[in-house]
Design a protein around this nucleic acid. Structure first.
Lengths: 331, 331
DNA sequence: CAGAAGACCGATCATATGCTCAATAACAGA
DNA sequence: TCTGTTATTGAGCATATGATCGGTCTTCTG
């Protein structure tokens, strides 16, 4: 696997553009026009496998998008059940791929649809986002838009302890996609000390973020378990000792860095006092959409639902089923 | 080819629902999940060809949709050029399928995207529509929505002379798709006599339609040539003598039944005095979107652009190219 | 300018998909 | 219940697609 395919050639930009253009055209003819790759090859005067590569490129680069428009009965039922039981503004449930229970692609598409619908509006709007792989994937699924009147605001820092940016930073990419104004949070998830956090948060940038957050129309956040294999640890956002402190304090999950217990109560733990993210507040006028699914996320989601840490949920069928089937199960 | 597969069995509804559900699931796993049909067959406990059929069904019934999200340079250029030259609010140009120059599927998708964006809004809205194959196909491409607050209004009657409804009626289907209130026009395109038209238009229903039209946010209309093979003739909306009268009077095209000449001026012809549709009025506050493309529509589109009969255009690359290349060519 | 590295391309092959057909199952009418 | 009719199914086959491999061409470096 080549490591940096784009950076080697200086004239890559124009080349790439042309290539993507061709890819889009080929994919259009293939999926929308319903032609075969051979026919497209003839029309575009390319070899068949060149067309095959273009189509594959268009799919992998998501120049072409697939959307399901049919209410699958069991998903609809699960969604309605969860929405009603937990007083959610909405709940979207996508089919699961039984062969890949951890896959987030369906959830990402569903989240993208919601985000898209929201951001398509021309009225200036502020949208807050957390971080994480699922949200990042959702942003990749978005159509490009041109909405410089919108603002996208980060609820949580994307820097790991070392100072390097997380590849799962969402604000910047979202800002790119919709050409909106971007407000990243220049902070790690956890500061070293409580004093550091206070110093950080008294900065001007944080005041701005807080003000924007208060006017936001919606927040889209991920959710994660707290544990030894959890992404928040393996991505270097929390140290081993943070994790063990949280586990001892009874943490089952976190949202934007804030750890909570099985009842969905934010923990009164020293670790939580070093969280640099904006506080978890769920005012009714702002939609707080939790996006996530997979077996590891069932317990955190259960807790977050009990603690009313969200006003909407986007998940997959298997997770929704688990949430509906044993809602009271505390582990 | 079986003629009426659905009507034979009384229990079709539930069967069909189940089948569509399965089809949606299979298509989801196939396109979004990226699994092979064999894998899906195993997971769903079906034979491989059963899955193949489900996927094909989902595609043909448009349970699964393909959208291109990439500005193909040449299309973008054509669109910008047309929009600027004719003062259009917007112009969308989709790639053409060189092997099927008359195909409207791309145009239909593009129109669906615009319609979708408009109708997704929750603020009550009135949208007017004409008729025709292209618009009908566009409506088929729409996602289902639930917007009972919207009203969809017909600008033109869908009855042919014989009294039977056209299969290309758009309002009813659009109303179904978005669960909006529907206002069809209970009239033919052309009445028998001028007196008939006046009688029709003095009816209460017409007053309502006119009032709704005046408050409409947008109109989506088709366009057609006037000639011996034109759909408006072969579908029985106009008689042979109507057509010859119009041709003699210099008609090159029609929009919602109103014939116009090469300069885009509505004809002062006896035939036009029998048109039951609402008048062609293009007030700036209401978007009037013409949707159509193909070789036969170049001349009508040219005329309509000259006569400023539209405020926006959705067409395909080949047509756009023809419009840009020889804009002044009168035939 | 030579050499090396890497991207790109087309040929070939394995696999996946879609179509046809014959058998079977479901069904309506008698 | 029987029977003719029609939808549905799976097998087999033709076609389309996707992956691999080796060669070529470009481009960067010494």
């Amino acid at each position: 696997m080549p490591s940096s395919p784009g950076s080697s050639s200086p004239s890559t930009d124009r080349q790439t553009d042309k290539r993507r253009d061709d890819a889009a055209r080929a994919a259009w003819l293939y999926f929308i026009g319903g032609r075969t790759q051979d026919e497209i090859a003839t029309q575009l005067d390319l070899s068949r496998q060149a067309v095959q590569r273009l189509v594959a490129l268009a799919v992998s680069e998501k120049l072409i998008k697939f959307r399901l428009d049919h209410p699958i009965a069991s998903c609809t039922e699960l969604a309605a059940s969860l929405a009603e039981r937990h007083g959610l503004a909405f709940c979207d449930v996508t089919p699961s791929d039984p062969a890949a229970p951890g896959s987030t692609s369906g959830i990402a598409v569903a989240a993208a649809v919601r985000l898209q619908r929201l951001l398509a509006s021309k009225a200036p709007m502020i949208v807050c986002v957390g971080t994480g792989r699922t949200l990042r994937a959702a942003v990749e699924e978005l159509d490009t838009l041109d909405r410089p009147q919108h603002k996208v605001v980060s609820l949580v820092g994307a820097m790991a302890a070392g100072g390097q940016a997380s590849p799962y930073d969402v604000v910047m990419r979202l800002g790119d996609k919709v050409a909106a104004q971007r407000y990243p949070m220049p902070a790690p998830v956890l500061t070293e000390t409580v004093a550091d956090r206070e110093a950080l948060q008294s900065q001007r940038a944080f005041t701005v973020l807080r003000e924007l957050r208060d006017q936001a129309r919606a927040s889209f956040v991920g959710i994660s378990e707290i544990g030894w294999q959890a992404p928040i640890q393996s991505d270097g956002f929390m140290t081993d000792s943070d994790i063990s402190a949280l586990i001892e304090a009874g943490a089952v999950g976190e949202i934007t860095g804030w750890a909570f217990d099985a009842e969905g109560r934010p923990l009164d733990s020293p670790v939580n006092r070093r969280v640099a993210s904006l506080p978890l507040e769920i005012p009714p006028q702002r939609l707080t959409v939790v996006v996530g699914g997979g077996p590891q996320k069932v317990a955190p989601l259960k807790a977050a639902l009990r603690g009313k840490l969200m006003s909407a949920l986007i998940t997959d069928e298997a997770t929704a089923k688990a949430l509906v089937d044993q809602p009271g199960d505390i582990r």
